[in-house]
Design a protein around this nucleic acid. Structure first.
Length: 209
DNA sequence: CCGTCGATCTCCT
DNA sequence: GGAGATCGACGGG
């Protein structure tokens, strides 16, 4: 009942959504879905996802879990889908990922941008901004900061009432752009895979090169 | 508008 | 010792 009450705009995405094997398909389907947080207080913050990147676990050179590498940082990637993987990038920025697939399959989806819809004033405060524009939540580091997502929440369930997803828009394939992922030039042939997904024409996407 | 650069944690060589 | 799933400040055109 508590979880029902936590829903803001629609039904929560269930464990079965996250535990499917096809990380590329989930990466596409996450576009248009709502991501919400209620962290450090009563206020809900979030919006509709407009940009994702899929990381295909053991076989993907761009993945932290390539070759089934296990470190303290990446241990949560091996849990069953539906938990957060949050790590520190360049020593500064928390990057938020959704772990997908069955247990021991370390698939992850990086959430790169969203269209803010809820708790915009609190997100502005977390980002030390006064005006709402695309820089509030465009780019994975900016998005995580706006939502209050810190490394300490890595491993948190996405099925509870602190961090969760809800049903939003389902886009037609023609409304989705797929292109190469950002910042993984070291990944050889995997750097060329079109595993970054964007809502076509969205004004809220990152402009990373 | 664009390119450059510093910040500074985790993991790898 | 070096690089990285980044961002924002700064200086030049």
């Amino acid at each position: 009942m508590r979880n029902q009450r936590a829903a803001i705009v629609g039904k929560k995405l269930p464990a079965a959504f996250f535990r499917r094997e096809d990380v590329l398909q989930i990466g596409r389907e996450l576009l248009g879905q709502y991501l919400f947080t209620r962290l450090g207080g009563a206020r809900v913050t979030g919006g509709r996802i407009v940009e994702t990147e899929a990381y295909a676990g053991a076989t993907d050179r761009a993945s932290h879990a390539f070759g089934n590498r296990r470190t303290r940082r990446t241990a949560v990637m091996y849990q069953a889908g539906g938990v957060a993987y949050i790590y520190l990038c360049y020593g500064l920025h928390a990057l938020f990922n959704i772990i997908t697939g069955p247990q021991d399959i370390p698939h992850a989806i990086l959430i790169r941008a969203l269209e803010p819809t809820h708790g915009i004033d609190l997100m502005l405060r977390r980002r030390s901004k006064t005006r709402l524009d695309r820089t509030l939540t465009a780019g994975p580091g900016a998005l995580a900061q706006a939502l209050g997502l810190r490394v300490r929440y890595s491993g948190a369930s996405l099925l509870g009432n602190k961090i969760w997803l809800e049903k939003g828009i389902d886009f037609h394939p023609a409304e989705i752009v797929s292109t190469t992922r950002v910042g993984i030039e070291y990944a050889g042939a995997d750097a060329q895979r079109p595993w970054r997904f964007l809502v076509r024409g969205s004004a809220w996407s990152s402009r990373a090169k």
